[in-house]
Amino acid sequence: MKRTHLPLNALRVFDAAARHLSFTRAADELAVTPAAVGQQIRALEEVLGVVLFRRTSKGLELTEEAVAGLDPLREGFLYFEESVRAMQAGQASHHYTIAVPRDFFAAWLGERLSGFRDANPEVQFALVDGEASDFTEANLDLAVRWSEGPGELEGIMLGNAELVRICAPGQVLQGDVPLIYWQGQPEAAADGAMLSVPDAGQALAAAAAGLGVAEVPSLLAEKWIAEGRVAQWGDPLPSRRAYWLVAPVPQWRQKKVKALVAHLGQA
């Protein structure tokens, strides 16, 4: 089959219908009607000379022929996306747009980006505040998120999944210890807290000021502990969450992103 004759639009419809096993949900994703999805599937079946879906009492099922072609098809779409991004990058091949929480940038990431730029003086960075920034809307290359894992994205964990309890150096802790709560903690941790702050960075600063004890990510506190700005109280605590460096597969495969990920993963 000549490349110019590849039914790309019909293949895209097939991918959506195969993921949802529903023409209706595929139509919603693609912003078309279910009838249009059915028409594209029938046209694709005619071109390929195979049946792709069977209707059963439980709904749609993929045929063996359809299953055999799905993985290569999806791999091909990923390469299409990567190709488009590579063509769009142009002069921006050394420009990084990163979504990162402010406190994490101040405590850990900023210093490491500086080290990366020392070795790659041509690079430029644009930072977007917030963990929930959309990759497409913000045109992100990477994001740092405080989460239980990468989810549907590719990612690596930065540091360990643990919290440390910190307080002001020399602070005497007796009786009811005043607790500092920040919004990335489970809500149950807010019970009895003396102070509530928006993020772990402010919890760290509040503890350094002698306002109480805070449980913050160890990666965030390690420099302050080493400098004697705060003292660690007790042993580290396991955490379900950690800082994750994440991106969708097409971005993750880019050469420039791989280079920065490798640098940060070793830092």
Rank of each mutant, 00 (worst) to 15 (best):
K2Y: 04
R3I: 13
H5D: 15
L8S: 08
R12W: 06
D15I: 05
A16F: 03
A16N: 08
A16W: 03
A18G: 11
A18P: 05
H20Q: 14
F23N: 12
F23H: 13
A27H: 08
E29L: 11
L30Y: 06
P34H: 09
A36D: 02
E46L: 11
L52Y: 04
F53P: 07
R55C: 02
E64C: 00
E65Q: 15
P72I: 05
L73M: 08
E75M: 05
G76R: 02
G76T: 07
S83K: 01
R85V: 01
A92E: 10
S93A: 11
H94Y: 00
H95I: 00
V100T: 12
W108L: 04
E111M: 04
L113T: 03
R117G: 01
R117Y: 00
A119N: 05
V123Q: 06
Q124D: 10
E131L: 03
A132C: 01
S133D: 07
N139W: 04
L142Y: 07
V144T: 06
R145W: 01
E154N: 14
L163G: 13
C167V: 09
P169Q: 09
L179V: 02
I180E: 10
A190R: 15
A203H: 08
V213G: 08
A214P: 10
P217L: 10
E222I: 04
K223R: 15
W224D: 15
A231R: 14
D235F: 06
L237E: 12
S239H: 05
R240E: 15
Y243G: 03
V249G: 07
K258G: 08
A262K: 13
L264H: 09
